[in-house]
């Protein structure tokens, strides 16, 4: 057992898989000698050499498109895009090809690649470095979308993603890259994709979140416990394929749902959760489902980012609202 941060757990997962399977190749901008701008690939270049830890040109579509070819020819590419906002140039490759290759060749070709990138706000970064684009990926059939919220899951989910036979978008909450240090088992283990986690059990209201927002929900739950409100916190972990059974079970139990995400509200993944919950559980609900999210605006420059991001105060207000309904 080692005490690791999320970014160290990511690095550890890459190291474990590269050590076990020489088909696993890391590629991206500055992932080599520099060890990645967040150090997620630190030391791997020295350990595995330039043909397994590949510094590429600054070329996001190139990174993903090349990874598709590498995956088709038997490798397991793990591509890093430096920041959330720079995944956009790679959307065509990801949506038109990676996501569809298996289906449009009816299984002749598969595309087992992982696209990792740090996402989300809260680190006083420049514009285009704070995006939460999960909805685009979840909306694209053929992709899997994974968002860890803690070091243990980051490692286990990344190993599972690398071994997965389908393309996985792996979004790392950069705001808490180094915020938590946690016990992480050494060596090989997986956290199965498609399984949500009950981060905290409760009875009055279900707070459903992923990535950095799980912590905000946990803080909210702490604060509300003193007021006698019992919050259940669900960490979705895999947005696609989503563990609807676990989400719905919690919603049925509490009868009240608050969904929290950083992405803009309209058509964010919270909208899908709200739709599903009312489709399946209308008569169990004690209140409307409320979304606490980023606003439907571009992510603001960092002087206003705390005004934009959900926090325990906003989440707490939503909880009080559903309790009072």
């Amino acid at each position: 057992m080692a005490r690791l941060t999320i970014v160290e757990a990511v690095r550890d997962a890459l190291d474990v898989e590269m050590g076990k399977d020489d088909r696993v190749i890391v590629l991206g901008e500055d992932v080599g000698a520099n060890g990645g701008v967040f150090r997620a690939t630190d030391g791997l270049y020295k350990k595995y050499g330039q043909k397994r830890v590949i510094d590429t040109p600054l070329s996001e579509s190139g990174i993903v498109g090349t990874s598709i070819g590498m995956a088709a020819n038997g490798l397991r590419p793990v591509a890093e895009i430096q920041f959330d906002g720079f995944t956009y140039p790679a959307f065509d490759q990801l949506f038109s090809h990676a996501a569809k290759l298996r289906n449009r060749s009816r299984g002749r070709y598969a595309c087992p690649l992982v696209l990792r990138f740090p996402y989300g706000g809260g680190i006083r970064a420049l514009e285009h470095h704070n995006e939460s684009p999960e909805t685009y990926f979840v909306h694209t059939p053929g992709l899997k979308v994974v968002v860890p919220s803690n070091p243990h899951d980051a490692k286990g989910l990344l190993i599972a993603s690398i071994r997965d036979p389908d393309p996985v978008v792996f979004m790392e909450p950069k705001r808490i890259y180094r915020a938590i240090r946690d016990n992480v088992p050494e060596g090989d283990y997986v956290v199965e994709l498609g399984r949500a986690r009950i981060a905290r059990e409760g009875t009055d209201v279900s707070l459903i979140a992923w990535g950095a927002m799980v912590r905000e929900c946990e803080k909210t739950a702490d604060q509300l416990a003193s007021k006698g409100i019992s919050c259940e916190v669900i960490d979705v972990r895999t947005l696609s394929p989503c563990d609807w059974d676990s989400l719905l079970a919690s919603a049925q139990k509490t009868g009240r749902v608050v969904v929290v995400h950083e992405a803009p509200r309209t058509l964010g993944f919270g909208a899908e959760i709200a739709a599903r919950v009312q489709e399946e559980l209308l008569l169990y609900l004690k209140s409307p489902i409320i979304r606490v999210t980023g606003y439907d605006t571009p992510f603001p420059y960092f002087k206003l980012e705390n005004e934009y991001l959900p926090n325990p105060e906003r989440i707490g207000r939503a909880v009080e609202q559903v309790m009072k309904f």
Binding site: S61, G65, G69, M70
Partner: peptide, 8 residues
């Protein structure tokens, strides 16, 4: 890019 990826 797919051709280059397979080549690589």
């Amino acid at each position: 890019l797919h051709g280059v990826g397979v080549a690589l």
